[in-house]
Design a binder for these strands. Structure first.
Lengths: 381, 381
DNA sequence: TTGTAAGCGTTATCAC
DNA sequence: GTGATAACGCTTACAA
């Protein structure tokens, strides 16, 4: 009685305003829902004739495949991996290293059949944007290591989601993808030492969420929460214990310029070599040096870190530690995949490759107590 | 009978290996599931005492809130908006305009309580990554206008998802966010015309998915599928109908360099002004000009498009059309929000602002039939 | 190869 | 303010 004897299956017993469901399709095709489901998932063999009938019915009803929401509830998987960045997207993607990493990551999770949901670690109570606490994700990748990462980590753990950390320490339970920051930085420092440099300064990434610029004292170093910064600094200090430490507020060319001005314009003794903790910072330092009439590498050597292509470096080739950024991302994706498969993912430590460029050279022979003359007098009143 | 008289609620009638559900919490708290649900959603008033009991039970059971998958099935919303990019992520995020747009977009969708899922328009059958066809998203934002966008559009429409297009034409049904490309380009051209330029070339974005570099003939222009490219070109041709057209394969400084070399090294007559369709291209053109010993703007004027900050431009300030990239993204987010709310979102057309910089100047006075001498002889054998 | 049936964990609705 | 009930749309043992 509920099904009026209409002129065929094209008059099914359902509200036409409603979207068709797989049950509708099955009914129209005269098969069971499970068969229809299998036709779409391909998880079991189906007779070709049956398949055709189901597809035809689907086309007829405008059914375009299983509702992902229902499927993910049933399967217990959403096919989405959250990536938690510690900053504004614009900022995150300004950093070529992060971009490369993201690329590897999307690759990595794609093999697992997942997509990447961008999340910020400060998207909290205020807005009702999907947070780590509410997003339908299967796993989480944490990038960076700000203080807020602890919060993120707590949420993730209480949700019981697999998690991988890139460049950060989340305890032994959590697999991490890291770099031999200390060793690579040490190598750069030794390179400069071999060239005879003694008055060396280093321009670092931020030490903490405050991201304050300028000279840094021991206290702040000790209290720093950003692992990478400290590791790279430690590597340098092994070689140059008394290195002057200037912090930037982020990995940008402009920040490098600011730090460089501080180093070169200041009245004190100028360094003959600057070890920047990123290529972008290094590019800025070089620019600042040139602003002050200093030649690179004749008057001052500058090294970077990352091994990315930096625009605006002119003909310089940066002496730097090349890190496998894309691979790092891919490794994170793989680790997530493994955890989702129930395996235990191990932490991975990647190795940087030292690359000698044209921005480092022999230390200038000392003429006086001071550094080379500022040929353009920019720093003078 | 099913609940053994254990020593209290901490011995609930459930498999302890399973994650607690809201039903478990409700049972432990001695309330109904609906009440427990309301405690978490806050969608209805609950007595404080009840609330406390539920929260306590949740804490006890390690329940951290509703399962997003189940909630999204029930609600019919996943809180996720897909963003379809026409390229590799790394490539997409290399483009400052896109990054800025993405930023605005995440802002825009956040007001709606949604996150952004990154999708590529070629992530198809091959892998089983979540595609437009299978991702649990509430709405879709299409960026760009490659040929593959049509496919994406078909999928989206058959799924009945709200969709917004940024910089592309998807028919009148689909709200779009666009720019006054033609007018803005025309303005730049008139600016150069006013400065006396006659031999003008333009370096364009790609015309089609092939992205072939080099001089372009009428046929290819006519067959071009990329709206932006054509619109900006049209604007220029209104003023300079015979402009030489050189296509790049993307908005990159390097591409600008290649195009610039073609223009400046070639034996033919050199342009006195180059209208690049993006700031990055313009930066490359400038670099190429300087390679060839040409001064900007004395020997050749160069204009860009976008108004982003370009690193590596030295002291130049680009003459360009400044587009409101972040606003575009936010507008897309807003449009999606409106559509999700059942309203009909209108298309929006943003306006660029002409900015005169230091890279454009009066046309050099003609000395011979040829362009200024290549002072460094780079182009000579 | 196909069908039956039992959920997946929530939340909207409505009655109390 | 709280509770019973019925979906939401699908998948997958298991049985036939």
């Amino acid at each position: 009685m509920t099904t009026p004897p209409g002129p065929g299956p094209e008059t099914p017993d359902r509200d036409p305003a409603r979207r068709a469901t797989i049950a509708d399709v099955a009914r129209a095709a005269g098969v069971s829902p499970s068969t229809a489901s299998v036709v779409f998932s391909g998880k079991a063999p189906v007779a070709e004739a049956t398949r055709q009938r189901v597809m035809a019915a689907a086309a007829e009803l405008g059914y375009t495949g299983p509702d992902p929401r229902a499927a993910s509830l049933r399967r217990g998987r959403s096919g989405i991996v959250a990536v938690v960045l510690e900053e504004h997207l614009r900022t995150a993607f300004l950093d070529p290293v992060k971009t490369a990493m993201m690329d590897g990551l999307t690759d990595g999770v794609a093999t697992l059949g997942a997509g990447v949901l961008l999340l910020r670690d400060d998207a909290d109570a205020g807005s009702d944007a999907p947070t780590l606490a509410t997003a339908p994700v299967d796993a989480v990748v944490l990038i960076g290591c700000s203080g807020r990462m602890r919060t993120a980590l707590d949420i993730v753990r209480s949700r019981g989601l697999p998690v991988v950390v890139i460049e950060g320490d989340a305890g032994d339970e959590v697999p991490r993808i890291e770099l031999d920051n200390r060793e690579a930085a040490g190598q750069l420092a030794r390179h400069l030492q071999g060239l005879g440099h003694e008055r060396v300064a280093t321009v670092t990434l931020p030490f903490d969420v405050e991201r304050r610029r300028g000279d840094v004292d021991e206290d702040r170093i000790a209290q720093g929460t950003v692992e990478v910064t400290r590791e790279r600094l430690d590597g340098v200090r092994e070689v140059f214990p008394d290195v002057r430490v200037v912090a930037s507020s982020g990995s940008f060319i402009d920040e490098g310029v600011l730090a460089g001005r501080l180093l070169f314009a200041g009245g004190g003794t100028r360094p003959t070599a600057v070890i920047a903790q990123s290529d972008l910072l290094a590019a800025g330092v070089i620019r600042a040096a040139e602003e002050h009439g200093l030649r690179v590498p004749e008057d001052v050597s500058v090294t970077g870190f990352d091994g990315i292509r930096v625009d605006g470096l002119g003909s310089h080739v940066l002496t730097t530690a090349v890190q496998p950024a894309v691979e790092k991302g891919r490794a994170a994706g793989d680790a997530v995949a493994r955890m989702l498969a129930g395996e235990r993912a191990a932490s991975i430590r990647f190795t940087c490759v030292f690359r000698e460029g044209t921005t480092s050279g022999p230390a200038p022979t000392k003429t006086a107590d001071d550094a080379p003359v500022d040929r353009r007098g920019v720093g003078d009143p």
